[in-house]
Amino acid sequence: MSARRRPIGDTLLVVDGVSLSFGGVKALTDVSFDIREHEILAIIGPNGAGKSSMLNCINGFYHPSAGAITFRGVKRAQMRPHEAAMQGIARTFQNIALFKGMSTLDNIMTGRLLKMKVGLAGQAVHLGPARAEELAHRAFCERIIDFLEIQAVRKTPVGRLPYGLQKRVELGRALAAEPTLLLLDEPMAGMNLEEKQDMCRFILDVNDEFGTTICLIEHDMGVVMDISDRVVVLEYGRKIAEGTPDVVRANQAVIDAYLGVAH
């Protein structure tokens, strides 16, 4: 991997002994790892290993039944997803979760909602501050649109876009929030080779240009080994390995559980 502008820094988020269960089913059991500033961390594992549940815990959608998550030094017990968003955690979803009735531009603008401050009365009049604010954020979103090369579909309702483009718009919406930590749930699922390469480039560029810390779930081992700094491996809700791609690749437990079967 080429030299990066921002070296990997201190710990940003600590997952400490997190367990999660639904009724009697244990989705996660005593999982611990950390995410460091500016790194790209991949979470891998067979289907049903609890990867998405892990992301759902991190951004407050699920509440762990045991253990704690510390983000930027603040330990939290129960947190709603919007609070996680306010602290600078953004994410994308395995099954795209875009606002289907809205245009590409409006979807990406929703990523800026937390940064817009003008009150209801100001917006009703739509002059002066409201207008200026709207335009400033529009300009920011247009930069993201340029970056993701989706200018042509700016005004198209996202429900009509092909799958690959929807994935990009979703990434754009997450980026618009200028997150500290970006969670990507299978950003390349269902893509062809070319689309995957584009998406890899976007992820690396985001990490490099904005210094965004990224935690991603991915099934494509080639991609994971190429772009991530470290890898965490889950199986049946437990962590079975952690380390650089090379270390994980050589780990016998991982080979048995996952790579051995997949390749």
Binding site: P81, H82, F99, D106, L114
Partner: peptide
């Protein structure tokens, strides 16, 4: 404007809306 997008986000997918901070 902002408030309209907030409403539409809730309409189209309330869970996703909450996750982006609404």
């Amino acid at each position: 404007g902002r408030i309209g997008r907030t409403w539409m986000a809730i309409r189209d997918m309330d869970i996703a809306a909450e996750i982006i901070g609404i």
